[in-house]
């Protein structure tokens, strides 16, 4: 690996008392890429973002933004930030918040361009506190991109948005990436990472579990999804050695497995009345479940 990074963690360790939130994490964000950081709650996503933003300091290793200490204002002038929760001043109008945030940056994006890109042009005169949750998220997104950043941190940006607003935000993110802006995206919605990310880092228990493109991640976990109409008990099927998981959804049995052929053969033997069989390569969701599964439980199953 010999390329450039706009932000990175090098063997970063962060402890809170006896809890190790990050355990020697290496992470590099390359220019112009959209990097999704995934992981269950408590995996170390927030600590990673906090270190890269200079909000917390590593106990060992280091964090860099554009080759500088993240607390240096020169580095932060090149980033935009949308945090998971921030109660912005309720009595300020959207336009006032935007102009204030623009004033922090040396070469901000034009006011009209920002409002059009973030879809907040119709909200400018409204006090922030009077907006709906989804509208507030759009305003926070506008504040994140108004500085014409080279690197954008989006922490769970689409939580609380309806489908339409989410699609618009995805479109805006794609446009920013086309402009050459790198994006670090944390999200709980795997379809979001699947739709947008060029690279995915999966964190679990403070370590990097996997890193690569969405396709590489899918391949790494060679799971296949089987769906069918049948009478078999989901728990009984889940106990089969080849089966990673089995659940019943509606009338259908849904199975994830690394050995689809074997499982299909067993299913057909077990229930001759089986119908509407579907076999599909696993999506990111299955890969993610497989990766972040509790290692102790995996050993027991094996």
């Amino acid at each position: 690996m010999n390329d450039t990074a706009v932000a990175r963690l090098v063997a970063a360790v962060k402890r809170y008392g006896s809890l190790t939130a990050l355990d020697a994490v290496d992470l590099a964000v390359r220019p112009g890429e959209l990097l999704a950081v995934l992981g269950p709650n408590g995996a170390g996503k927030s600590s990673s973002i906090g270190l890269l933003l200079g909000l917390i300091r590593p106990d060992a290793g280091r964090a860099e933004l554009f080759g500088l200490d993240p607390q240096r204002i020169e580095a932060r002038r090149r980033i935009g930030v949308m945090l998971q929760s921030a109660n912005l001043p309720a009595t300020l109008r959207v336009g006032e918040l935007l102009r204030l945030t623009m004033s922090y940056y040396p070469n901000p994006r034009g006011f009209d361009e920002t409002t059009a890109l973030a879809g907040v042009a119709d909200l400018l005169l409204r006090p922030y506190g009077k907006l709906s949750g989804g509208q507030q998220r759009r305003v926070q997104f506008a504040l994140a991109l108004c500085g014409r950043p080279e690197l954008l941190f989006l922490d769970e940006p689409t939580v609380g948005m309806d489908i339409d607003a989410r699609q618009k935000l995805w479109a805006a993110m794609r446009r920013l990436v086309d402009e050459g802006c790198a994006v670090v995206l944390t999200t709980h919605y795997l379809e979001e990472a699947e739709a947008l990310a060029q690279r995915v880092v999966v964190l679990g228990q403070g370590r990097v579990l996997s890193e690569g493109s969405v396709d590489e991640l899918r391949k790494r976990v060679a799971l296949t999804r089987i769906r069918c109409l049948c009478d078999l008990d989901a728990d009984a099927v889940a106990a089969w050695a080849e089966v990673a998981s089995a659940t019943r959804q509606g009338g259908r049995l849904q199975i994830a497995t690394a050995r689809a052929e074997t499982v299909v053969r067993r299913l057909l033997d077990a229930d001759p009345a089986l119908a509407e069989l579907e076999v599909q390569r696993a999506g990111l969701a299955e890969a993610f479940t497989e990766l972040t599964r509790d290692p102790a439980a995996t050993q027991e199953a094996a």
Partner: peptide, 13 residues
């Protein structure tokens, strides 16, 4: 991994 050099022009205000 080489860091992108601090770009003075981009961050000067």
């Amino acid at each position: 991994v080489a860091a992108v050099p601090a770009n003075a022009a981009a961050s000067a205000m």
